[in-house]
């Protein structure tokens, strides 16, 4: 159980509050208007922005002050998910060993992960030589080897075409199923929500609402969500 208790984040004049509990193994979609605080919520969970008030609890532990790397989660950003000067294999290897001192066993894991995302033949290339879809796959391979309890996605596939994005989401779904991780994903697309999410966290007007079952919510949205989704 990941709990954000009475949490508030302040960045300049912007403030966002949240008091939510998230279940491991569930897939959450974070939706809401631009600028409502979706990315801020993820950044707060990951430890990139400090909590002004409140606590973040993982199981029984208070991890409010923990460094990003020490939290049970990994995040894919909108861009810059790979180091351009390292090879694909090295980028993935960093998920296992932050000092890159990769052992033979680690290497096998890296290769397994690359195999899993279909990039084994690209292992020695640098990100700049890959297509957009391949770059996403490489980043996912790293998420796979990291095997954290939580995977956070901040619209990493926004730049991909619909077919490719659907393919990536399926891959993500498979991966979190394999590692039994929880997924928290920011998205703008209702079809993504339907495709992947169990629960929806609606963020609006500086507040992250408690998660609600996705299907029910999308079928019968409250007024604020209805307005965001538009008529249709």
């Amino acid at each position: 159980m990941l709990r954000l208790e009475n949490a508030q984040v302040k960045q300049g004049r912007f403030a966002m509050s949240a008091d939510i509990a998230l279940e491991r193994g569930q897939k959450y979609a974070v939706i809401g208007p631009s600028g409502a605080g979706k990315s801020t919520l993820l950044n707060a969970l990951c430890g990139f922005v400090p909590l002004a008030t409140g606590r973040l609890i993982w199981n029984e532990d208070d991890i409010t002050q923990a460094a990003p790397g020490a939290r049970p989660m990994t995040m894919l950003f909108q861009d810059n998910n790979l180091f351009p000067h390292l090879t694909v294999a090295q980028n993935v290897g960093l998920g296992l060993r932050p000092d890159l001192k990769v052992s033979k066993r680690d290497l096998d894991k890296v290769n397994d992960a690359l195999q899993r995302v279909g990039l084994l033949d690209q292992a020695d290339k640098r990100p700049g030589a890959l297509s957009g879809g391949q770059q996403s796959r490489a980043a996912l391979a790293r998420v796979l080897v990291q095997a954290r309890e939580w995977v956070l996605l901040d619209e990493p596939f926004a730049a991909l075409g619909p077919a490719l994005r659907a393919e990536m989401l399926d891959l993500v779904q498979d991966l979190v199923a394999e590692t039994r991780a929880g997924l928290i994903m920011v998205t703008h697309a209702p079809e993504d929500v339907r495709r992947i999410a169990d629960q929806v966290i609606f963020v609006a007007e500086g507040r992250a609402h408690a998660p609600e079952p996705a299907a029910a919510l999308m079928d019968n949205p409250p007024p604020a969500l209805r307005e965001y989704l538009g008529a249709g």
Binding site: P68, G69, M73, T74, F83, L94, G95, P98, D99
Partner: peptide, 14 residues
Amino acid sequence: YGRLAQTLGVTGWP
């Protein structure tokens, strides 16, 4: 790349 390094726990000399 600061955030990426942090999620990976790459700190200090590494």
